[in-house]
Design a protein around this nucleic acid. Sequence first.
DNA 1: GGCGGGTCTTGATCTCGATCAATGACCAGA
DNA 2: TCTGGTCATTGATCGAGATCAAGACCCGCC
Lengths: 246, 246
Amino acid sequence: MNEISLIPDTCADCPIRHRAVCAKCESDELERLDAIKYYKSFKAGQAIIWSGDEMDFVASVVSGVATLTQTMEDGRTQMVGLLLPSDFIGRPGRPLASYDVTATTDLVMCCFRRKPFEDMLVETPHIGQRLLEMTLDELDAAREWMLLLGRKTAREKIASLLSIIMRRDASLMLKTGQGPLVFDLPLTREAMADYLGLTLETVSRQISALRRDGVIALEGKRRIIVPDFDLLLEETGDDADGGMLA
Amino acid sequence: MNEISLIPDTCADCPIRHRAVCAKCESDELERLDAIKYYKSFKAGQAIIWSGDEMDFVASVVSGVATLTQTMEDGRTQMVGLLLPSDFIGRPGRPLASYDVTATTDLVMCCFRRKPFEDMLVETPHIGQRLLEMTLDELDAAREWMLLLGRKTAREKIASLLSIIMRRDASLMLKTGQGPLVFDLPLTREAMADYLGLTLETVSRQISALRRDGVIALEGKRRIIVPDFDLLLEETGDDADGGMLA
DNA sequence: GGCGGGTCTTGATCTCGATCAATGACCAGA
DNA sequence: TCTGGTCATTGATCGAGATCAAGACCCGCC
């Protein structure tokens, strides 16, 4: 039950050491960060922050998956961020949260008290430089996502989401021999719908359709098997070369 | 015909001096920037950059409006950025353009040669700090945009776009007496459709509907008159307080 | 002053995904 | 073992926006 074993003893042991906001830090900078940081764990489904909450910290996702969502007055919900290990939560200089943040799997965060973090942002350039890189990457991802939301069909949206999740946690992915790739969806059908701008029924139908057509196979509800990754890519509507950024 | 008169003589005269990437620069930093900069003008409709092009500069929009768009193989197009004066074009460290950039009005850009700009980014923290702020703002805007694309109705999308354009160039806006606000759309119906993830026919129909319902009035095709801004805001689907970021 | 092309509007019809509704699968707890 | 709850699937029908099509408006140009 206790997830404390997943919390790294030192930054050197940290699974996101080389990809998170601290990636460029020297050991003296890490020591300074160490003094203002603490770990926090959440269970799958638990709310981390509500939009409008006061936020006295910023954080990195150490393990697990969280989502950023916006909700309209009448309840319509859109996911606007999918946070995987090493991703950053919060905005320096902003005291109130702008989005709802929810853990969709069990999750560990490495939190930094906001004020001292902001001071370090000014004083130690490595953190600001890394945060700029990460923010530019997120902006690129947001722009791909906008193309998906505005112009892709439901089937293309599902195929795109599957390939995005596969790519983003490629390191954690289970490989079965040569070809087929296996991974677990960290999202419910409803969360997938909120990501894609669809209803959960349409998500379910399109997953069934992709299964019928042999593009994917299922093991239980959450485990996806992709026998041929190129076949999945063709269904995304992206360019053959992945439509990825040059 | 010659737009050269719109090019500022010195940075002190520059209309975007206090909002662009150079906003935090001291005079010595401005001098360094000055040595690597040049102005470039474009006519309405002209392509500035194609996705995949080599880009040996980054730039600020000085005056006019440009768009960032992505196009799928079959021609489906989605706008992913609307660049108004002071907005930044290009990504430090990236030699190839990721998006098509097009001038939708006559436009002046202040370009910086990329390599020396990247050097300054490392050496003078003010530029990197400002670029980080601007990028975080763009990311917030992209997330609002995702909510619009994924969950808003066609009518809400149009109302949202109108209020976004009004807000963003509020400074340039023509005020007629007290209440009614007047502004010119810097986009064709087709560009609006690409912004909103709609067809141009639907854009046209919804604009007509908002006109019929008295939410807006038209003067020609491009000039919009808003008799009551609150009425327009109600049509956007956003929270009463603008749904804006805390 | 009429012609041609770009831009915009409006109408008729179709279709994809939403909505409404029922059922199934799975699991934790009584 | 049964029960209630969450999550997912599938079917029937509806409707917002896409698509196809026809004109209107506007402006520069020969």
